[in-house]
């Protein structure tokens, strides 16, 4: 890794400058991560008095545990659902805004602000709109004969949290798609339209393939978002229910550790999540090195 050609002399100064960042990292990142690794190999007795070394038993148990496997598939559905909904809406809006000339910045302003809203608040907003007794959407759904109830129905609850999570993420995807669209050379599109390609044809054969680097990047970012940043949505609304149908992995770590006080199992779940973050980060960084190219 490079530095400047010319640098400052100084034996201790660089360490002093790095110290605050490094100390915070060691105390609040490295040490707890190490603790999680260590605790994942232990089991505490029922009173929390003694702990015994059990090796990989906690992990083995997790993979035999029906509720953990359920949580994994719930997380997968949630992540895929959120990513699909928010990316497709954002792509539709971005490619439409990109056609506009005078109104582009107005529409952009109107679409970017949900980024600022906390996941927990997004959750509460949608929870309120879909509230079975006073909410506006269940009222409309009832007119077409559907009884919405996210308190009993697992699929209703899942749909609700996906909507809330996707809604908040639209603005982020929109901005990146818009930037991607603006970097596509106009001459390609002009050439295609001279050859008689319709707007639809141009979108699917030229624009969409050229957007694939952005699309791929956003896919990774959205999966990370859905897996790790949506704790607030779940906690403020369904709390993992009904019947664990929205119990995503991040929520389960919290629920098992803080509410269930099963430290060994919670630590093992933390370790699995860390492995997932590492894999996703590596994918994201490799992508930046070598973009999907045509």
């Amino acid at each position: 890794m490079q530095t400047k050609r010319m640098t400052f002399p100084g034996r201790w100064l660089p360490f002093a400058l790095l110290a605050p960042q490094v100390i915070v990292t060691l105390i609040f990142f490295i040490w707890p991560a190490g603790q999680a690794l260590y605790q994942s190999l232990l089991r505490e007795d029922a009173f929390g008095l003694r702990s015994t070394f059990v090796g990989l038993e906690n992990f083995a148990r997790l993979f035999r545990d029906g509720s953990y496997l359920n949580s994994m598939s719930v997380t997968a559905i949630f992540a895929v659902g959120t990513t699909l909904v928010s990316m497709s809406v954002a792509l539709l809006l971005a490619s439409t805004v990109n056609r506009m000339i005078r109104s582009r910045s107005t529409y952009t302003t109107l679409l970017v602000w949900p980024y600022a809203i906390a996941p927990a608040i997004a959750g509460v907003l949608w929870w309120f709109i879909f509230n079975p007794s006073i909410g506006i959407v269940p009222y409309m759904l009832e007119m077409v004969g559907y009884q919405w109830n996210h308190r009993n129905s697992g699929s209703d609850a899942m749909l609700l949290v996906i909507l809330a999570a996707a809604w908040k993420q639209i603005s982020y995807n929109f901005l990146f798609f818009l930037a991607g669209l603006q970097s596509i050379p106009q001459s390609l599109i002009e050439a295609a339209s001279i050859d008689g390609a319709s707007p639809f044809k141009r979108f699917w054969t030229i624009i969409f393939p050229l957007l694939s680097p952005t699309t791929f990047f956003l896919m990774v970012v959205n999966v990370v978002y859905a897996m790790f940043d949506t704790f607030g949505i779940i906690h403020a609304t369904t709390q993992g229910g009904p019947a664990q149908s929205t119990n995503i992995l991040v929520y389960k770590v919290y629920a098992d550790g803080f509410v269930g006080l099963n430290l060994g199992s919670s630590a093992a779940q933390s370790v699995i999540l860390m492995v997932i973050v590492v894999v996703l980060t590596v994918i994201q960084f490799r992508f930046i090195e070598r973009r999907v190219n045509y």
């Binding site: 990142f29 040490w31 991560a33 605790q39 770590v253 550790g257 933390s270 860390m274 590492v278």
Partner: peptide
């Protein structure tokens, strides 16, 4: 490395 350790995955420690 801190990039890879969001608070959500190391809550209890």
């Amino acid at each position: 490395v801190t990039l890879m350790l969001p608070v959500e995955v190391r809550i209890i420690p």
